[in-house]
Amino acid sequence: MKQSSRFRHESLQSRDSIKGLLKALTNGIAKGKVVLEDEDGNMVLEPDGLLHLKVSANQDDERSNITVRISWREENSLPKKKSLKINEK
């Protein structure tokens, strides 16, 4: 069984620094390796194949947010191909 791990980072950033982080993220996705790192830990992810993308946004009088979620399944966690036989009697 694969061990579960988490990485979480939260901080205030300028638009320019977020732009740089998003560019590094997209470059990592393109290369198939994303390394996340801060003072509390690190995580290496290897996105491959088809990725699921979800973008959502909310806005009210005082606060706005954009959430981007990218997910995928590791190759070894995909269901294995099995043959199926159906007999009619």
Rank of each mutant, 00 (worst) to 15 (best):
M1A: 02
M1Y: 10
K2R: 05
K2Q: 03
K2C: 03
Q3P: 15
S4V: 13
S5Y: 13
S5V: 15
S5C: 11
R6S: 11
F7S: 02
F7D: 04
R8F: 11
R8P: 07
R8H: 12
H9M: 02
E10L: 06
E10N: 06
E10H: 07
E10Y: 11
S11P: 02
S11V: 12
S11C: 11
S11D: 10
Q13I: 11
Q13W: 14
Q13N: 12
S14E: 08
S14K: 09
R15A: 00
S17N: 09
I18H: 12
I18N: 10
I18E: 05
K19I: 13
K19N: 04
K19D: 03
K19A: 10
G20D: 12
G20P: 10
G20Y: 09
L21K: 01
L21P: 02
L22N: 00
K23N: 09
A24F: 02
A24Y: 02
L25M: 06
L25N: 00
L25C: 03
L25G: 00
L25F: 06
T26D: 04
T26Y: 13
T26N: 08
N27V: 07
N27E: 04
N27C: 03
G28K: 07
G28Q: 09
I29W: 13
I29V: 14
I29T: 14
I29R: 13
A30L: 12
A30I: 06
A30M: 10
A30N: 09
A30H: 10
A30D: 09
K31F: 01
G32H: 07
K33N: 14
K33R: 15
K33I: 11
V34F: 05
V34Y: 01
V35M: 00
V35W: 03
V35H: 04
E37I: 04
E37L: 03
D38N: 13
D38M: 15
E39Q: 12
E39I: 15
E39W: 15
E39K: 13
D40C: 10
G41Y: 08
G41W: 11
G41L: 04
N42S: 09
N42G: 08
N42C: 03
N42K: 14
N42L: 07
M43V: 07
M43L: 14
M43P: 01
M43R: 05
L45W: 07
L45C: 11
E46H: 09
E46P: 05
P47W: 01
P47N: 04
P47A: 07
